[in-house]
Design a binder for these strands. Structure first.
Length: 266
DNA sequence: CCCCATGTTCGACA
DNA sequence: GTGTCGAACATGGG
């Protein structure tokens, strides 16, 4: 489920716990989300520590606790962060519950593609170090975008936009939305595009990030029908710009929705 | 029973 | 090295 702005939405869901001390940690020891850190280690590191602050980067999140404890979370395909009362009895999909005096911080993930990492130390762990600029930031410049396209000149644009090392946070619906707004065919390669279309993709990338943060991050608002988003899920969906039929193809192993009427191969 | 799903990773192969 | 492809992970919904 979660891409850039959804991840930011979920990160904030735990903020009511900031400043409180962990009284207890409930885990399901066999949950796949703990494959990089044992449930016991997570409990041992977190119990008794204060929740200080949190960050999101792309699809990853980092929650910092006292005594230099770093908790890394990735929501995978179906993960969610919620709060509950401290008396929570976790159901079968609540794999991690961090109990604080007035609130419980809960990570549920019925498909278990998510990931939990734990670290204790003065400096950031490897998984929260040397993070690349995010597309919504000013540091992600047109110059940087041009360099990525040059370096990955033969990669289909749809597959390239999904590369987390270059476009942290962009997922399937955002990549389709970006190319649809730029009127670029999802299988087009950077080397085939004119500078005009390369610039259009950069502008769309920034615009889709801004729109997603504005509409989704605050309270999970519904995107307007002027986006591709609301039409891409329906069979026989129609392109809101041309009124023509949408089509679905597989690019980079992912289902890709596009509008053949306005997204032509160069 | 079938197919699909807003994600990542790994191995095989051209 | 680059790029592609399929499978795997696990569960639920249509």
């Amino acid at each position: 489920m979660p891409e850039l702005a959804e991840v930011e939405y979920f990160r904030k869901q735990w903020s009511p716990g900031i400043g409180q001390k962990v009284t207890r940690v409930l885990t399901h020891p066999k949950a796949r989300i703990f494959r990089d850190a044992s449930a016991g280690e997570i409990e041992r590191c977190l119990e008794g520590q204060s929740f200080l602050e949190s960050f999101a980067h792309g699809k990853k999140m980092c929650f910092r606790f006292s005594s230099k404890v770093w908790l890394g979370l990735h929501l995978g395909m179906a993960g969610k962060l919620q709060t509950a009362t401290p008396e929570i009895v976790p159901d079968r999909h609540d794999h991690l519950a961090i109990l604080l005096p007035s609130v419980a911080l809960v990570f549920s993930d019925y498909r278990m593609f998510g990931k939990v990492q734990i670290h204790q130390g003065n400096s950031a762990p490897f998984w929260w170090n040397n993070l690349p600029p995010q597309p919504q930031e000013a540091e992600f410049t047109r110059q940087r975008f041009r360099e990525i396209l040059k370096r990955r000149s033969r990669r289909p644009l749809k597959a390239l936009l999904l590369e987390q090392a270059d476009f942290p946070g962009i997922g399937n619906w955002m990549a389709d939305e970006i190319l649809w707004r730029a009127r670029v065919h999802p299988t087009a390669r950077p080397q085939d595009l004119s500078n005009h279309y390369r610039n259009r993709i950069f502008d769309s990338l920034k615009e889709v990030c801004d729109d997603a943060f504005r509409v989704i991050a605050p309270d999970w608002g519904d995107p307007p029908d002027s986006w591709l988003f609301n039409h891409r899920w329906k069979r026989s969906g129609q392109c809101p710009r041309s009124g023509k039929a949408l089509d679905w193809i597989t690019v980079g192993g992912r289902t890709t929705c596009y509008s053949p009427a306005i997204q032509k191969l160069p």
